[in-house]
Measured scan of single mutants.
Amino acid sequence: MQIFVKGLTGKTTTLEVEPSDTIENVKAKIQDKTGLPPDQQRLIFAGKQLEDGRTLSDYNIQKESTLHIVWR
């Protein structure tokens, strides 16, 4: 499925993911596209910070959802 990651600059990155992907895995995909290391990424969805060990489905993140990224 496709999801979007929007940064503070307003730039949006598209990712191809599975609902079973962990947040850690998603951060690795973001690094592949942007070069930003996972330890500098904070992902937010529906006002919650996403924890590395959880999956996208744990947070009810579905296709075409938009996550927000904040740099540490």
Rank of each mutant, 00 (worst) to 15 (best):
M1W: 08
D52N: 11
T9F: 15
V5I: 14
D52S: 07
T13Q: 10
V17M: 03
G10N: 08
K63S: 15
D58M: 05
Y59T: 01
R72P: 12
K27P: 00
T34K: 03
L50K: 00
N60E: 06
L15A: 02
K29T: 03
P37Q: 09
K11R: 11
K6T: 13
L67T: 01
A28I: 13
T14F: 07
V26P: 00
G35A: 04
I61V: 09
K6H: 14
L50T: 02
T66Y: 07
L56C: 03
I30S: 01
T13W: 15
L56Q: 00
L56W: 02
I30Q: 01
Q31F: 15
E24Q: 11
T66Q: 05
R54G: 05
Q2R: 14
L43D: 00
F45D: 01
D21K: 01
E16C: 10
F4R: 06
Y59R: 00
I3N: 01
Q62S: 12
I30L: 10
E64N: 14
L56I: 09
I23M: 03
N60K: 08
I3H: 01
L43W: 03
K63A: 15
L36S: 04
L8E: 08
I69P: 01
I61H: 00
V17Q: 01
K48V: 15
G35T: 03
W71T: 11
S57L: 10
D32N: 13
F4S: 04
L56G: 00
L56F: 02
Q62V: 13
T9M: 13
E16N: 13
Q2D: 05
K6W: 07
Q40F: 11
T34L: 14
K63V: 07
P38W: 13
K6Y: 08
S20A: 09
T55Q: 07
E16H: 11
T9H: 15
G47L: 04
D32C: 08
T34E: 05
K33Y: 09
G53S: 10
F4C: 04
R72H: 14
L67I: 15
T22F: 08
D52E: 10
P19G: 07
I30M: 07
S65N: 10
T13C: 10
E16T: 13
Q62M: 11
V70A: 09
P37I: 07
P37F: 07
T55W: 03
D52A: 06
G7L: 14
R54I: 05
T14K: 08
L50P: 01
R54F: 13
Q62P: 08
T12L: 14
Y59C: 02
G53N: 11
W71S: 10
I61M: 03
V5L: 11
V5A: 04
K63C: 06
E18T: 14
R42E: 12
F45M: 04
A28N: 11
H68E: 12
D32L: 13
T13E: 12
T13V: 15
G47K: 05
T22G: 03
N25M: 15
T12M: 14
T66G: 02
D32G: 10
K11G: 13
L67A: 01
P37G: 06
